[in-house]
């Protein structure tokens, strides 16, 4: 469904992303892992059309994304790392606005809003101002806002940052539902246990390059010699080192 081929992006002398390639299939969750500054967010931004790559292609069902108004962007839903919501407006007004950006008709938009709010458990808070929501509720609404146009591909950039275990669990349930519906999910996070729970495959990047891409079982090949079956975090540290990146 989504093919990322040789994506490259540099800011002056700094190469943020260097020839990154991977693919994402329907009904699959791919975890995109990497230390801070590894190029995860830049990669996601290039897939979402926020950043123009210096090289490489983003293919959706074999066709490259071309320009800001390419209708294929309709098939992508972005869940930004930030809480990209208007605190001053109600949840309903937020969703009405974000849905209108995808040119949904009023009837379709209403159905989509009801469906999304129900999925994330906020249907009864639709008319409340977002500023009154807890962090977890905002995170769930952040997800709902990305689902209105019923995208096939969901790009999730650290969607559980700063939420309590209950909200995190609720978001996981939402994502598992979406996966079951056949959506393709690209999931970036620093929480290894999230990837272990959700991901079918994992792509680990560092210094703008893919250093490993495999299933959770397949990644065991990178475990330290003689360590037996190890956690994803151990493998991650083995591949990316223990040097602080901030």
């Amino acid at each position: 469904m989504l093919d990322v081929r040789g994506l490259r992006k540099a800011y002056g002398d700094l190469v943020a992303v260097h020839e990154i390639s991977f693919s994402l299939n329907a009904g699959e969750v791919v975890g995109l892992l990497g230390p801070n500054g590894a190029g995860k967010t830049t990669t996601v931004s290039m897939i979402a059309g926020l950043v123009v790559p210096d090289g490489g292609q983003v293919l959706i069902d074999g066709s490259p994304l071309a320009g800001d108004t390419d209708p294929k962007k309709q098939r992508i839903g972005l869940v930004p790392q930030d809480l990209a919501l208007y605190d001053e407006l109600s949840a309903l007004s937020n969703l009405q606005f974000f849905g209108a950006l995808y040119r949904l008709s009023p009837a379709v938009l209403k159905t989509a809003i009801d469906r999304s709010l129900t999925l994330v458990g906020l249907a009864d808070r639709a008319r409340d101002r977002v500023g009154t929501f807890s962090g977890g509720m905002k995170r769930r609404l952040n997800l709902a806002a990305s689902l209105l146009h019923d995208p096939d591909i969901l790009l999730l950039d650290e969607p559980t940052v700063g939420v309590d275990p209950q909200s995190r669990n609720a978001i996981f349930s939402n994502l598992e539902t979406l996966k079951a519906q056949g959506k393709a999910l690209l999931y970036t996070t620093h929480y290894m246990e999230e990837v272990e729970r959700l991901a079918d495959r994992v792509v680990i990047v560092d210094h703008g390059r893919v250093v490993a891409a495999d299933t959770l079982d397949g990644l065991q090949q990178y475990a330290p010699t003689g360590a037996g079956r190890v956690s994803l975090e151990t493998i991650f540290l083995a591949l990316t080192g223990r040097t602080l990146r901030d």
Partner: peptide
């Protein structure tokens, strides 16, 4: 700053 512009730019809308 609040990431809203990312959401706007990810929609199929011209600059």
């Amino acid at each position: 700053q609040r990431g809203l512009w990312k959401r706007l730019r990810s929609a199929p809308i011209s600059r």
